[in-house]
Design a protein around this nucleic acid. Structure first.
Lengths: 102, 102
DNA sequence: ATTGTTCATCGCAAATAGACGATGAATCTG
DNA sequence: CAGATTCATCGTCTATTTGCGATGAACAAT
């Protein structure tokens, strides 16, 4: 939106927190991550069975999680295997831990 | 939105995470919380000096944080003193810690 | 009583997010 | 080559979020 003339400079930490928080701000995405956490990996199809929403909707949520860096998808035709991105996961974990630790 | 006929049941943990994450999903709100964390408490006016946005906008973000339970406002006419809600803060801290701890 | 201060809320406009069905790309199988 | 399978993307619709200025409420001080 950004209609202010003044440039807003968010410190790095604020941006990182906000970005990861946004990825976690929808119950379905939290659910997907928890599912991936248990299974270690899964195909899109397993999620569409697990979660009662249109396949296209699940796919969009996966895209957002991927763009946030929290998951990665390996193409294994004709399927795609999704896993949690270890590195980003730990970065997020740390960011939230630091943020909440007062 | 909810256009699916099927009822979606989110486990409690998913809802809690999503709710707090949503509150943290905007850089300004993260910034407000960090400011409150440092100052322990502050008035709205201090935030409008700190953050270059319209007073009404800051006020809205405060409202969202309040509705998420993360802060509380004590009316001290003509001002309002905002503090972090200790209890909710710790609940959120724990929820994220549990979520990320695999 | 009038004025000033501080803040919330309203009303609007623009942007973003969420959901769906339909379609398309890529790859197997027969 | 002709289906079948799996998934992403597109287009569309609606809902929500974000931002602003303007206005109003509550109180203090004059």
């Amino acid at each position: 939106m950004q209609r202010t003339s003044i440039e807003i400079n968010y410190s790095s930490q604020e941006g990182v927190i906000a970005r990861y928080a946004k990825a976690l701000s929808h119950p379905v995405r939290v659910r997907i991550l928890r599912f991936l956490d248990c299974q270690s990996c899964c195909f899109t199809g397993e999620l569409t069975e697990e979660i009662p929403m249109a396949q296209s909707t699940i796919s969009q949520h996966l895209k957002e999680l991927k763009e946030a860096g929290l998951i990665q998808g390996d193409v294994m035709p004709p399927r795609v295997k999704y896993c949690i991105n270890q590195k980003a996961w730990e970065e997020a974990q740390k960011a939230f831990a630091v943020f909440f630790d007062r």
